[in-house]
Write a protein that binds this DNA or RNA. Structure first.
Lengths: 110, 110
DNA sequence: CAGTATCCGACTGGATACTG
DNA sequence: CAGTATCCAGTCGGATACTG
């Protein structure tokens, strides 16, 4: 077996790792927020315009959670009026192709 | 652009497709159940032994949901005592590599 | 502008006891 | 054997009003 034959996906199911993944993905809007953001850097208000139907409370909560998980970063500019920009972290961008592929699973089960 | 350049993952985020995928994945045990089953065919009792910590109610409910989604099939044998076997459908097996890769996302965010 | 605070109904998951 | 039925606590998401 060469290194290129090695796939981490051959690992046994691990509940804590799965739960980490689920915390990035699950929640009614979490994955959608990540995919809509993509590689852009967007201000809070712009994000909420791109995500109609997501209430303020939920959007703020999801963003906070995604920042805490290390998926997104939040940059606050000390201006008046205040400006906050959101973007994926390096890890988030690294995971983006995988996250996009999750949509393929959805297409399979329609 | 040739067919091999075409990736469905380049699609714009689509909420209803994402929600289909989430219904396969989300729930505290749903993905774990799929990955533990894998390509095996298992009886209900064997499954519940492999999934300690999942209550009867939840396991039965998750299995029912996964069958309804077309991820799993349930085969009832008209024997006494009754025997029921669960296995992934063709679609489920087709999606299995993608589903396993979700664990990689989890490993990234530890 | 970029969030909080509050209230609320609906849904999730767990424990336990029971059944065709 | 393979589930149901019941109850219950906790969480999730939505609506709305308010704030540094």
């Amino acid at each position: 077996m060469t290194p290129s034959d090695f796939h981490e996906s051959d690992f046994e199911p691990d509940l804590s790792i799965i739960n980490n993944a689920l915390s990035v993905i699950c929640g009614k809007w979490r994955l959608y927020i990540i995919l809509v953001l993509g590689e852009q850097t967007l201000r809070y208000t712009k994000l909420s315009e791109l995500l109609p139907g997501v209430s303020e409370k939920v959007l703020a909560g999801e963003l906070k959670a995604l920042v805490a998980l290390g998926v997104m970063k939040r940059v606050l500019y000390a201006e008046i009026p205040s400006r906050v920009e959101y973007a994926l972290t390096e890890k988030g961008i690294f995971a983006l192709p995988q996250l996009r592929q999750i949509q393929q699973i959805g297409q399979l089960f329609t």
